[in-house]
Nucleic acid binder design. Structure first.
Lengths: 135, 135
DNA sequence: TCTGCACCTTCCCATCATGGTAAGGTCAAG
DNA sequence: CTTGACCTTACCATGATGGGAAGGTGCAGA
């Protein structure tokens, strides 16, 4: 099938399919006489794998590792689990950081009357108060 | 003072200070005879404001709005609060998405023995299972 | 005075994942 | 033969940041 159908089936844009090929995440696609790329079941499966990993927040480097692990019949499930848990830890870190931001902002917003007057603890906080200390 | 000291005082890299100037987030700095940029209290204050907003996850566009609100003595605190709450909603959305990813991954990881054998529900999930449906 | 070093300047390139657009080739249906 | 959908490559953009090159400035010490 052509790249458009592969895109529709996998939810990966044609643009990104070509990009993944260019960075070696997927092998060079077969070409027809027209020079159009030609995809089969195997390619669709691989692209679906990539899309699901991407949707779970794995970086391209991690996805590269996952693809290698996927194709390695010798590897232990412990290898996959380790990579996954490392990624979970990254997610936890991001969630924690965003949560801290949210907490600080919510505290400032709570202190702000939000009326017609100009006095605003949010702006004052940004303008110089200690946002991370005792609040 | 020179850009290096301004950077040290505010925690904004010299590189970014120049960048903020180039995109109009801060006014063009005064120049000495040497053509070196020259900063004063006012500039330091503004850069500190930007750094704090950045640390709270505001985008450059939002920071631009915040700076405008900061300098506008007419604006109501409601304007600032609205912008802040919009940003909090963005943070909540990101946190929710990351949390969903984490949940799916944790479920898969829990199902994975993580031993020497190759069978791995994580890889199987990525390879085609329904990750978002009943799991 | 010369030298060295720390600092500054501008300019260009890279990241990461993705999209847009332009200029042109292919192919099937009407 | 035309139309339209599809494909090709190539280049540019995002947002926030860093890296590095090539060269100017300024001060302290030999």
């Amino acid at each position: 099938m052509q790249i458009g159908e592969a895109s529709r089936l996998t939810g990966v844009s044609a643009k990104m399919i070509r990009h993944y090929e260019s960075i070696g995440l997927i092998p060079n696609a077969d070409r027809r006489d027209s020079n159009y790329r030609d995809y089969g079941h195997h390619d669709i499966h691989r692209l679906g794998f990539i899309r699901r990993a991407r949707d779970l927040g794995f970086s391209m480097d991690e996805i590269r590792d996952l693809l290698r692990l996927w194709g390695d019949t010798q590897r232990s499930s412990a290898d996959v689990k380790a990579l996954t848990e490392s990624h979970i830890a990254e997610l936890d870190q991001k969630i924690r950081l965003l949560g801290e931001m949210r907490h600080t902002l919510a505290t400032l917003a709570d202190a702000c009357d939000g009326d017609h007057r100009p006095d605003c603890p949010i702006i004052e906080g940004l303008a110089g108060a200690d946002l991370h200390g005792a609040n």
